[in-house]
């Protein structure tokens, strides 16, 4: 009975030409968070199990939303009318669901700020919540906006696990520029990422150190980032830790990161 009603309900929408999905599922960590932000929760049927992990989502997931592990058999019984996947990952499940006639849409992961806007707007279009998505991107644009940077631009290096620095073409670089910093790796001609020795980072003599991508869990990759030479030359107040979530869902936190970076710039000036 319930499914029949749903069917009629869906039919009425498709007839009116304005099909607004009512049973949305996500197979992507970042789309999880954006869905919770933009779509009324009663229209979400499933999110990935990571959405409930405090390391990634850090929110309360309503009880009716089922957590999936990226497997088609978890989603099928929920009869989703729209399954959202990222550009990569969950490919097998997506193919399988498509084969069974479920509507599966992929949204590209953002590589830069424009990519974030595109991602949010694409989600808005697909879920029939374009207005909410536009409001979201407008608010983000306002935070990121073209800032008139007054005063000096402190020189920084973005150092991340395995001794990798981030240069041109990276979202981190864009955020730093917007926050009024001068990224020395970008200036040295580093495109995207490059492994650089501890010595070189010290030799560049940045005013402050931006440490990116470090999770609290142990990894040998983080060892260079806790070397005494760095910690002595750049004491606590001259270090900024980019939240590692930036690598997963920049759309959800980029605004907050830029605000924190601007505060940091004020502090070290």
């Amino acid at each position: 009975m319930q499914s029949l009603l749903l069917f009629l309900f869906a039919l009425s929408f498709s007839l009116s030409g304005e099909a607004r999905p009512e049973r949305i599922a996500s197979l992507n960590l970042c789309l999880d968070q954006l869905l919770l932000e933009l779509v009324p929760h009663e229209h979400i049927v499933s999110l990935t199990w990571l959405a409930a992990d405090p390391r990634y989502g850090n929110r309360d997931i309503p009880d009716h939303i089922r957590l999936n592990h990226g497997r088609a058999e978890e989603l099928l019984p929920l009869q989703p009318d729209l399954v959202l996947v990222g550009q990569y990952g969950a490919g097998r499940a997506a193919q399988f669901l498509k084969g069974l006639g479920v509507r599966v849409e992929a949204i590209a992961d953002p590589a830069d700020i424009d990519g974030i806007y595109r991602q949010v707007n694409a989600l808005g279009e697909l879920t029939g919540r374009a207005a909410a998505a536009q409001a979201y991107t407008r608010a983000l644009q306002k935070t990121l906006g073209p800032l008139k940077v007054a005063g000096p631009r402190p020189k920084v290096v973005v150092y991340s696990p395995n001794g990798i620095v981030m240069g041109k073409g990276m979202l981190e670089n864009q955020l730093l520029e917007l926050a009024g910093f001068d990224n020395l790796a970008a200036r040295a001609g580093v495109e995207y990422v490059k492994p650089v020795s501890l010595e070189s980072v010290l030799d560049w003599q940045p005013d402050a150190l931006i440490i990116a991508g470090v999770y609290p869990q142990f990894s040998l990759a983080n060892v260079p980032l806790r070397h005494r030479a760095l910690l002595r030359a750049y004491p606590e107040e001259k270090r900024f830790y980019m939240p590692p979530e930036l690598g997963q869902c920049p759309a959800a936190i980029a605004g907050g990161v830029v605000e924190k970076l601007r505060e940091f710039r004020q502090r070290i000036k």
């Binding site: 010595e199 010290l202 030799d203 560049w204 003599q205 070397h227 005494r228 030479a229 002595r232 030359a233």
Partner: peptide, 13 residues
């Protein structure tokens, strides 16, 4: 001293 030069020689090399 905590200059880059001192840190590289004394704390790294």
């Amino acid at each position: 001293d905590t200059s880059a030069q001192a840190m590289i020689v004394g704390e790294v090399r």
